[in-house]
């Protein structure tokens, strides 16, 4: 696949919103609503706990808590760019973590176990891509089926138990620090930057956006739509596996369903992020804003001692608000 770098500004760069002339205040509010929501949340929690919320320790805490979600949301972003979605990202991440843990406990060297786990994620993504792009199954059906099977495989690999006593060198990937900042934060930033670069500056990214915009027009324009979707799902599987391996290292253990909530939150983050670009397309910058909203909200509500059930309600309401914003924007265009 050609990876020539080209700019893809309209779909990917939220900064272009600010240079668009003659936009009403309402339109601007709609476009920047998600960013404003993030700022409002930060101001609110800072006002409630000025001594704590923006302290280095707490900001580090938030970044640590959302690092793995950021990676899996990055995977979800890719498939949502091509106009699909992937229900199996969290299950794939759990299976990859379980495979890595199982192999290491069986005596396999850490790098090799990680490579096999990454290959597992890649293969699941490839299977999703083949089913969707070449067998023409809907993404919902194909990834739902994969989610089911992959969860079963994770139970088989873990034998329904929690695998632990992993090598210290492996756990350091998730628990180690550089400059007092946990390693998963750096890894999440690196992966996000790579995905951002691919989406914004490469032909592959342009083809993904074109496919997501209009499959038929893309096909008639010479884009190999099938291959584009296949690659999107394959890379999403690989990135999900990275997230799962890091989660296992972070917790020092692996179970079949330990990353389950990352499915809902990754979709929520991408939806939240879709509101910040004019096109309403999935984009990495927006997804990271969405991830930040989820992380800030969860951390802030925890600090204020708000009940976890209320937190779930608020998360759902924010997703509804984000989707409504997207819908209003689409109508206003």
């Amino acid at each position: 696949m050609n990876m020539t770098t080209t700019s893809n500004p309209v779909l990917e760069d939220s900064a272009d919103i600010r240079t668009t002339p003659r936009r009403s205040v309402g339109q601007m509010l709609l476009s920047s609503g998600t960013v404003l929501a993030l700022i409002a949340l930060i101001i609110f929690f800072f006002a409630m706990r000025p001594d704590v919320f923006l302290s280095f320790t707490n900001v580090k805490n938030i970044l640590y808590q959302v690092a793995i979600l950021a990676i899996i949301a990055g995977a979800q972003t890719i498939v949502m760019v091509v106009g699909d979605f992937d229900l199996s990202v969290a299950a794939t991440s759990s299976l990859a973590g379980a495979v890595a843990a199982s192999l290491m406990l069986g005596g396999m060297p850490i790098p090799l176990a990680i490579l096999v786990a990454l290959a597992v994620g890649l293969l699941i993504g490839l299977a999703n891509g083949l089913l969707i792009a070449y067998v023409n199954l809907s993404a919902f059906v194909a990834t739902l089926a994969t989610l089911t099977s992959v969860t079963g495989l994770a139970f088989i690999v873990t034998q329904g138990t929690t695998l632990f006593n992993l090598p210290a060198g492996f756990n350091a990937l998730g628990q180690g620090k550089f400059l007092e900042i946990p390693l998963p934060v750096f890894i999440a930033i690196a992966i996000s930057l790579i995905l951002w670069f691919v989406l914004k500056y490469t032909t592959l990214g342009r083809r993904w956006y074109a496919t997501g915009g209009n499959v038929e027009v893309s096909r008639l324009s010479g884009v190999n739509v099938r291959r584009a979707r296949l690659l999107a799902f394959t890379i999403a599987g690989l990135v999900s596996a990275i997230g799962g391996i890091l989660l296992t290292a972070r917790l020092g253990s692996a179970s079949a369903v330990q990353g389950d909530d990352n499915l809902l939150f990754s979709v929520a983050a991408v939806f939240l992020g879709m509101t910040i670009v004019r096109s309403g397309a999935a984009n990495i910058v927006g997804t990271m804003v969405g991830v930040a909203i989820i992380g800030v909200m969860s951390n802030g509500l925890n600090i204020l001692g708000v009940n976890a059930y209320v937190q779930q309600v608020v998360t759902g309401l924010i997703i509804i608000a984000a989707v409504t914003l997207s819908s209003l924007k689409t109508r206003s265009r």
Binding site: S55, T57, Q65, I303
Partner: peptide, 15 residues
């Protein structure tokens, strides 16, 4: 997700 939820609850409280 009990382990990660408890981890976040206690981390945030201690922060």
């Amino acid at each position: 997700t009990g382990r990660t939820e408890a981890l976040a609850l206690v981390s945030d409280f201690l922060t």
